[in-house]
């Protein structure tokens, strides 16, 4: 192995974990991208390092993207860290944020191979999407016993969402990212997704970035089997628990 190749590979890896964009379109990192793309040894080292660090590396439209995947103790976020980053306090709010982010994804993609041709989303689009996704659950919580609502259940998320007013005041021109209203909550999630490089904002319209597309079209395609197994396991677990309690 040539020292030069190792050095280049380390340079690429270091840039990736620092969140820098390695792209043919970026003049500062175009040479690194070419090294990765044209030099087999550099490619092998970078791929190996990512694999050993439990990171997933994807190439999308001449740009490299890295994902920490699920349960990455070194590069992933803990619930507490996420709550601090987004600006929320309890897990219930965090799960609502997940739900909103999921709503954003589904506005752009129905599945990993089909885009919806939606160019951008606005705050009100996501509020309507979340309303729709939670509609049947909200109908269920129309009649419920308070102690029956588990903290991590969708009923809890729906109840939290339903109790939020649409806006705090009638003044809607400036909506602050805050936990006090649906608009504020969605704005808070938008800000976080923008910070994570998944969306870019222009005049209140949020456009998907290359990173969002890269991960949706690659990561979920690659790990779909495992993701379905996790849900299957959870469903069986839930059925088992239900039978036990009966």
């Amino acid at each position: 192995m040539e020292n030069r190749n190792l050095e280049k590979a380390l340079e690429i890896f270091s840039a990736l974990i620092k969140g820098e964009e390695i792209s043919r379109k970026n003049k500062d990192t175009a040479s690194l991208y070419d090294e990765y793309n044209d030099n087999a040894q550099v490619y092998d080292i970078v791929t190996m390092m990512c694999k050993k660090m439990n990171l997933s590396l994807y190439e999308y439209k001449d740009t490299l993207y890295v994902s920490p995947g699920v349960g990455n103790k070194v590069f992933g976020y803990s619930n507490e860290e996420l709550k601090r980053e987004i600006g929320i306090r309890v897990n219930r709010e965090l799960y609502l944020c997940y739900f909103i982010m999921y709503g954003v994804i589904t506005r752009f993609y129905t599945d990993t191979s089909t885009g919806t041709f939606t160019e951008y989303v606005r705050r009100e689009d996501i509020i309507n999407t979340v309303d729709g996704m939670l509609a049947s659950t909200m109908k269920n919580i129309g009649i419920m016993t308070l102690d029956e609502v588990k903290e991590n259940s969708f009923e809890a998320v729906a109840a939290l969402w339903e109790e939020l007013p649409l806006v705090i005041s009638e003044e809607t021109s400036v909506v602050k990212a805050a936990r006090g209203s649906k608009s504020g909550f969605v704005k808070m999630v938008f800000n976080f997704m923008e910070k994570q490089g998944l969306l870019v904002e222009n005049e209140g319209r949020y456009y998907p970035t290359g990173r969002l597309s890269a991960l949706i079209e690659n990561y979920f395609e690659q790990y779909k089997g495992e993701l379905y197994n996790i849900v299957k396991g959870a469903a069986e677990d839930a059925t088992y628990k239900q039978n036990q309690s009966e």
Binding site: P68, V70, G76, E81, L215, F220
Partner: peptide
Amino acid sequence: MSRVMETDRTELLENIIMPMLGLNI
């Protein structure tokens, strides 16, 4: 999402969201 909602465990959504996030360094 329908399958996750059937399990009624919201924390499973992190399987979709976590991989989308950047690295926490």
